[in-house]
Amino acid sequence: MDDSPLLRLRGVGKHFGRLAVLRGLDLDLCAGEIVGLIGANGAGKSTLLSIIAGLMPPSRGERTFAGSTGVGLAERARFAVVSHTAQTYPRLTAIENLQLFASLREKAGAHNEPLLPTLERLGLGYAARRQAGTFSRGMLQRLALARALLGRPEMLLLDEPFTALDRPGRTLLANVLAQERDRGAAILLISHDLEALVSVADRVLLLEGGVIAGEVPRAPEHASFGPRVRELAGRMPSVGTEAHA
């Protein structure tokens, strides 16, 4: 694979009527990096994710994934999305939930990881035969992540992945994401939780006013950015490194 970024957004804008949500946003996401994207409620994080995932065409600008602007079957087999809603079938067991998507992928000619080990990797091995409807929010979140990891995606998009997770859950998530990054996956994390983002991501970008307003520095003293970034950086705790341990 060449050096060009896996995901490239150029001048992406999205508006609903007169409400501009994204205003000409540029973003590069390369293989083997974790990029965090932080923004307040209504900053357009979910809209951006929908555009990247191909659920919504941008009003203007261009979205390129692996050299293609299309979001066909072949492209969708190469990335995965973990939404802030769990998106699992409550009447199916954990393993059945995975099995369904694995079979669907198989029919599309895509490869799958073995199911049970994937569940075990996320600490859900003990609950494999339980219906997802009985799961806690945190367990559902991990199940959704397991489903996303099934196809060893080249790009992994996560929307607010920390919200439902407890402390051990966050550590687990951070470890899994680091492993995926080291394997060569490009990972985009979207959240409003700066502390959690900084502890996991290689770089954290600020989404504000519908554009990438700047990069949140790794250490507060480097804050030669805008006032909003400085403000955020001021609130930032010392950078956690547990993810890379």
Partner: peptide, 21 residues
């Protein structure tokens, strides 16, 4: 009109961001 509104909005929103960075 919507587009004009949006590009005006864009211009207004872009200024502080570029000024800061």
């Amino acid at each position: 009109l919507d587009e004009a509104w949006i590009s005006l909005d864009d211009a207004g929103a872009a200024q502080p961001a570029t000024g800061d960075a």
